[in-house]
Design a binder for these strands. Sequence first.
DNA 1: TATGAATGAGCATTCATTCAT
DNA 2: AATGAATGAATGCTCATTCAT
Lengths: 197, 197, 197, 197
Amino acid sequence: MAIIVDKEQKRKNIALACKEVILENSIRNLSISKLADAAGIGKGTIYEYFENKEDIVFEIVNIMMQKYNEKKKKKLLSVTSTREKVIIFLSFFYTKEESELLQIYKEFVSISLSNPNLSMIDFQEKCSQSYYLWFCSIIESGIEKGELIEDSKALVKGLYSIGEGMFVRNATSNDTALLKKDINEFIDAIFKLIEVK
Amino acid sequence: MAIIVDKEQKRKNIALACKEVILENSIRNLSISKLADAAGIGKGTIYEYFENKEDIVFEIVNIMMQKYNEKKKKKLLSVTSTREKVIIFLSFFYTKEESELLQIYKEFVSISLSNPNLSMIDFQEKCSQSYYLWFCSIIESGIEKGELIEDSKALVKGLYSIGEGMFVRNATSNDTALLKKDINEFIDAIFKLIEVK
Amino acid sequence: MAIIVDKEQKRKNIALACKEVILENSIRNLSISKLADAAGIGKGTIYEYFENKEDIVFEIVNIMMQKYNEKKKKKLLSVTSTREKVIIFLSFFYTKEESELLQIYKEFVSISLSNPNLSMIDFQEKCSQSYYLWFCSIIESGIEKGELIEDSKALVKGLYSIGEGMFVRNATSNDTALLKKDINEFIDAIFKLIEVK
Amino acid sequence: MAIIVDKEQKRKNIALACKEVILENSIRNLSISKLADAAGIGKGTIYEYFENKEDIVFEIVNIMMQKYNEKKKKKLLSVTSTREKVIIFLSFFYTKEESELLQIYKEFVSISLSNPNLSMIDFQEKCSQSYYLWFCSIIESGIEKGELIEDSKALVKGLYSIGEGMFVRNATSNDTALLKKDINEFIDAIFKLIEVK
DNA sequence: TATGAATGAGCATTCATTCAT
DNA sequence: AATGAATGAATGCTCATTCAT
């Protein structure tokens, strides 16, 4: 009988093996054969598990995002104040721990700005939406708990975009320390206005 | 006239001649030879004036931004309230009038996220800095005029990034109406907090 | 039953199972794995019964030709005049009833022109020879019965090739109505010359 | 100033340089890089002169057919009897002189039977039509000159297809001597019937 | 006997760049 | 200064075939 493999698991393994090369190079400069080499498999085998090159990137971002979300969830549970939660939420954009994910994310944004294909758009919109809802729930529970003023709700979309805006602006210089300072100073300033004293 | 001036001028002319084709297609689908055709010059000549394709986008953004800044300056003088000035400032990201500039700007951001070369980084930092100072002076004069509370100053960087953040998030869907709504709702909400009553 | 018989039968079953997909697509656009899927067997199993893709077409033509020959034999017995027999004989190339066979036959001729393998050559020669003898006997009995002039015999090879020649010429346009007209007009013309009045 | 080349002439030269490799291999097994090597130019250069692989084959068949047609025209003028003209016309299919053209032609027929693309069909139909008219005029002038009976006209299409039919049937065995014999015996037989005594 | 996972050679085409003129 | 002919590296993907089970 033929060998039976766990396709889903192998897909993950290959994706993970590819992660390193993607981080070292950029997604754009990666050829399938380099990826196959990195994963220690044949070129054709890639296509047994992935539809195309982008599919690999999806899988990687997916895996990394899921892992990160788990971490984030825990971190968010470890603090109580809404302010701390917001800081944790936006720390994504400057945290050194997630520099790998950030790098991939940067590529992702770059591609989505100039080359968006349907599945990419779809993926990004789902991501964006789920993060937005998450962030929203943090602010809302802050209001419920009486930490934030009622009007905070109208600021959610903006606050949530601040990180991304600063991230993009900062992307060329890659000075995460500055980014951290800027984001946190803004949070301080805005909380002065929206915190119930 | 010095030769160097002519060269600079010709660079501009070529860039402008390329603008239309880049807008119709995306820079990624454009080959040097198509750009040369569009500009009515030889392929080799492109290389006399530009380092590569990205360099052309860079020049176009440069030219268009300068023009746009003149317009913006005038518009800003035509209104008096700080709120109106802020609205005008951030309207860049959704205004239909500047849709060409926005499209090119999108390409530009995309390139700067994944392929930044030195002059691009330099350009972007200068741009960013000058816009920041500009925006800063608007907020500061708002404070001076007693329209905004003192604490508004600390929000400047954030406010200024909101537009970009929303722009990037919005880039795939291209729904400018939604973008406009989101930006303006945020401005409303934040002004509730920072306007002196 | 001997194993060898089973193998032969399975070969036939697989070939027949592939027939439909080959008819829907062309053999050139079909990969072994699609054929294996269509036959409901594993890719490797194909190689147990066939040398290659062409070999499958070969088997299908074989099977279909045999079936067709039975039909043809009956039809030929149902008419009496030599002219009618000739018409039936050459109707193969345009008859709608056999359009599947014709399509496969076309593939087969194409392959035999550019990729003939030994067994294919062998098959074609045997086919050709047996059809020739068959056609020959029709003409000869026509002469014996006094329907055709003695000299008709020398025309046999040519008459017999006319159909194929017209078929090939017609293959690109696929206009079977025209083909039928051309073949039958030729038969009319030649019978004017070879029929005993 | 840039080098200016005679594109049309260079196209012909490249095609001719490719002819040899096509004859040694088959059209189907030829890669662009082999063709480029054979022509002593870079792979990219091929695409400066040809749209795609098939375009090269067209050019070659075109060139060879034109040359052959010139020869044929002269040969046809060198004989007077219609019978001789017909023999010359159909000799194409077995003549050793044109074995190169025949080989290319065989590939051509093979492709047209299974992979016809639009330009190929177009090309073949034009070819076929022009040969048919040519052959037609030979027979018609034979009738006018009183060499052939009036009824010969109705045989034209068939006679003209005989060669092709026999050629195809013969293609696998490649026995040109036999083909010659068969064709000429048929011509003898048919001329017995259509020649005015 | 049957399988299907793994493979890697093979391929058409594109395009930035060079450089002789 | 301007050109455009020539190039060849680079690439995503297919698929017949093998072979361990």
